[in-house]
Write a protein that binds this DNA or RNA. Structure first.
Lengths: 232, 232
DNA sequence: CACTGCAATCTGAGATCGCAGATCAACGAT
DNA sequence: ATCGTTGATCTGCGATCTCAGATTGCAGTG
């Protein structure tokens, strides 16, 4: 592998050096973790990932180290890396921070939004609704992640976005294990529609409230799941 | 070097393997950056740091990579790493996030505080006052960092603390370049005393308000400095 | 004296090798 | 059959070597 995401552009990517190999691997793993490709507690080894991707162990290792620093992975006593397991207390903490930061990003996005970006969010919301109706959990999770991320990007605050993404990185696997639920998708879509109407009206406080409701409703389901004893 | 922080315990640390070399180097650099040992824009090279510390380039490299991910360092076009230079806009963003997160941590700490921890914070506040009176900027900055960190630790939310520390990591160098100012230390001590009285009264909202005031007052000075064109 | 050009020397990044723990399965003794 | 031990094979971590790009400084030429 020279380019993790697009194997057909291998040579071009290797020549132009779009990013370092390590960066590509990091981005790839990060995206996979956020969207729930890996399960909580699943172990990741640098060597096996390296052979799987066709590179040396080093760039994989550095990517995994970065993910460990960010709290997505944890080092077990037996020196193996695994996806972090969240306690209900961990989850409460993350939810509190998420409502604060995502609420701030959403409110600011509402103040900064332009016609173009509003239209783009509208389209992403349609995609999200379609994904929810299709019942395809993977598709829904990906659409949900991009929908939220695009809103927060409008805030114009990249550091804020990166901190929010770090939180997603930690809760992503847990979300994946319990969200494939049609009821959850339906109620969540209600909040997303509320976000859209508030955005079009330019009501920043209402946008924040709808985002916070979305997070807390999802958190309620996930917390119940975590407390009930995790079945991975 | 086998142990970055305590060279006299070299052998013991190497034997007991308290942490990986990379982790020790990371912690060491992180602390140095937060407390302003390095200046904004200063370049850091993995090899020179490695020879300086007496280790191979690799653990230093991984530590620097992690710091780059967190936004403390940036990669220039000539592929050298340097301490990130903040624009006034960057600084506004960080300040907004800091008031949110540190306010939340302080408020929660006030709710969770015990007699023991209150006494410890009181002692740290005394240290801070002494440092301010001494006029020793380095000592003051270190005391200030531990004072705030200890308060936030009481919140019992480690992820929140680590996210706050990431913000400190980014603003640390800029703070160092403009804070060595007796007036600033004096006004800041006023807020710290307000934190103490609010903590003893158990008034969580007042604790949050005092912390927010402290951050915003400092931010005002730093922003003026950044806007005036940075003289490193 | 000024400008051009080449070479030495920086930089980060990747590959490869070896080490020390930890796990686990197979094998032998009881 | 069961328990204990041992060795093969995982794991992450560090050192070393190499490469490509960028900078720098010195030398040679106009």
């Amino acid at each position: 592998m020279q380019d993790v995401s697009e194997t057909r552009l291998t040579f071009k990517a290797a020549t132009l050096r779009r990013d370092s190999l390590q960066q590509q691997i990091y981005d790839h793993l990060r995206s996979d973790i956020m969207t729930g490709v890996f399960r909580p507690g699943e172990t990741l080894s640098s060597r096996s990932l390296a052979t799987e991707l066709g590179v040396s162990a080093m760039p994989v290792r550095e990517a995994l180290t970065r993910l460990t620093t960010e709290g997505a992975l944890e080092l077990t006593t037996s020196r193996t890396l695994r996806l972090r397991l969240l306690t209900p207390e961990d989850f409460d903490e993350i939810t509190a921070i998420r409502t604060d930061l995502e609420g701030m990003a959403a409110e600011r996005a509402a103040e900064q939004i332009t016609g173009d970006s509003l239209a783009r969010i509208g389209k992403l919301n349609d995609d999200l609704t379609a994904a929810a109706n299709s019942g395809d959990a993977d598709r829904y999770l990906k659409a949900n992640a991009t929908y939220h991320a695009e809103i927060y990007k409008i805030s114009g605050w990249p550091l804020l976005l990166s901190m929010i993404e770090r939180l997603w990185l930690i809760v992503g696997p847990s979300i994946r294990t319990c969200v494939p639920d049609r009821d959850h998708m339906a109620t969540s879509q209600g909040f997303h529609d509320a976000v859209m109407t508030a955005l079009t009206k330019g009501d920043a406080k209402a946008v924040r409230a709808a985002i916070v409701d979305d997070i807390q409703t999802a958190a309620h389901d996930i917390r119940a799941f975590l407390a009930s004893g995790q079945k991975h």
